[in-house]
Each structure stands twice: as C-alpha cells, then as structure tokens.
C-alpha cells in the first residue's frame, strides 16, 4: 500500500534560517502520526508546507500518488487537507456555527446570484451546511454554543471549535498543531478521546504536540524534528528509547522532565 501523504526532501528557508531541512516522511492511510521536537524545530512550518500556506523552497509532496508540490492552500484544502492552528485563527466576530460553516465552503456551489435570488437550490444547500455543521459541533461537544460569537468562547472551547471547522468537510488528512496547548489534564484526556473518535471515521492525522501524554496515547508512529531536520521516526516505544531524541530534549527546560518521565 502506498502512503497517503509523502514528503520527499521537503525544504523551506526563511532568509538565512532553514526552518525545514530536507525532511522526508510517509504518512499511511488511517494512521495518527505524531510530530514532535523542541521549540523552533520546524513543526509548524512542516504543517504550513503540507497545507500549502507556505511554499517549499525545494522538495516534493505527493498526496494519494498525485504530485501536489507548490499547490496553493485552497486547492489542497479542496483535496481534503484541513488543519488547525497553534495560535488559534478563528473568525472571532462570527458565530460558532458560522465558523464551522466556512469549513464547509468546498462542499457548496452557490454563489452571488443564487444568494441574491434565494433560489431553492441555495436554500437547500444552506440547510445542508447548517445540519452538517451542527453535527460537527456535536462531535466536539459545542452544539450548545452554536449561536454565540466565537470570541465569547472559553480558551479550551476555541481549540475545539478549530477542530470542528477542520473536520466538518470530512477531510482525508487532518493536521493538528498543538491542540492540547493550554488545556488542563482532564480536557487533554477528552481531547485524546476526540482524536481517536475522529480517526475512527477514517481520517488520517498529523499531530503536533508538546504534551507527551497526548502524543504517546494517541499516535501510532512518531516523527521527531530537530533544527528543521528529521532526527528519528518510529513507534512510541522506539522513540522513547531513542538516545538521540533524549539528548535533543535534554537541557531544554520543560521538555526534559516530560520525555524522561516516559523514557
């Protein structure tokens, strides 16, 4: 079986900084791939490359055996790559429901004329989007907040709303950038359950996370980045035992205890 997503020596430079340096990685259909590494290792940049928000300096990217290198973000989103953002990018002035409905944009067709004329097709489409968005909110547990402005949500709920917006169009590949950041342990545990449930609906995932408990609990395989380069790859058990991974984390305050706790 070939990989769902294949990165081949993907590189991205910003001026003098090589944020992602010749990273190759195969993500299989249905897996939850963990992507970890110290601060500034290039995790977010990798997700930006996969989602098309940043163009690669060199290298190739293949999705479902099609070369999609350099495709713009909206095309990749149409192909089923959806994501959340580390520093929360919600449409704060819109309601929770409207935020999710924007995630469904690609499932609709109607444009200016249909909206102005309020055609039957357009109204049916709106109804369908409404229903599917509520279902996505149900999945993450935010239905009762549907009518509130996104800016009125508590922090943990905002993270969940990002997930709802990303899954509503039933993506083939879901990229999560530190979804557990700022969550308390109970919330983090609920998040792991949610990630599993989404994965059970045949959604492949790449999960960037600093919370090791979340990574270890959710992922089937883990890729470790350090200074933009791939340092190691393997099952959680292999990563836990990997000398160079431990070394990379050692001395970096904050990560030390976490990785050692699992070592």
């Amino acid at each position: 079986m070939t990989a769902l997503l294949a990165l081949d020596r993907l590189t991205r430079r910003f001026g003098g900084v090589t944020a992602v340096n010749s990273v190759s990685m195969n993500v299989q259909r249905g897996e939850i791939r963990g992507l970890i590494g110290p601060n500034g290792a290039g995790k977010t940049t990798t997700l930006n490359l996969i989602s098309g928000l940043t163009a690669p300096t060199s290298g190739r990217m293949t999705l479902l055996e099609q070369d999609v290198t350099g495709e713009p973000a909206h095309r990749l989103a149409e192909r089923g790559i959806r994501r959340t953002f580390q520093n929360l990018k919600l449409f704060t002035e819109l309601t929770v429901l409207q935020n999710v409905m924007i995630g469904l944009h690609t499932n609709g067709k109607s444009g200016v004329f249909e909206a102005i004329l309020a055609t039957g097709k357009q109204r049916r489409e709106e109804k369908m989007m409404h229903r599917d968005s509520l279902a996505a909110l149900e999945t993450v547990g935010l239905v009762d907040q549907a009518g509130r402005p996104a800016s009125a949500l508590a922090y943990g709920h905002r993270r969940l709303l990002e997930i709802a917006r990303a899954i509503v169009a039933r993506p083939t590949l879901l990229l999560l950038d530190e979804p557990a950041a700022g969550l308390n342990p109970a919330e983090a545990e609920a998040l792991v359950a949610l990630i599993r449930r989404i994965n059970a609906q045949r959604v492949t995932m790449v999960l960037v996370e600093h919370h090791m408990d979340v990574i270890m609990a959710a992922c089937s395989r883990i890729t470790v980045l350090n200074y933009g380069q791939k340092l190691a790859e393997g099952t959680p058990a292999e990563i836990r035992a990997n000398e160079s991974v431990i070394e990379a984390y050692l001395g970096r305050a904050g990560f030390e205890e976490r990785i050692v706790a699992y070592a």
């Binding site: 989103a77 944009h105 690609t106």
Partner: peptide, 24 residues
C-alpha cells in the same frame, strides 16, 4: 450566504480562510 461568509472570513483571517478551501 456561502459567498458572504467567505468574504467575512477573508476579512477576519486570511490564512484560516485559505486553509478552509477558499480562493482568497
């Protein structure tokens, strides 16, 4: 509408709009 929401999304956050499949 779908069109109007796309416009408002663009105003509020272009990156998130792109990542939602909207051609800005």
């Amino acid at each position: 509408s779908r069109f109007g929401r796309a416009l408002q999304a663009i105003m509020l956050d272009e990156d998130a709009t792109r990542a939602s499949g909207i051609n800005v």
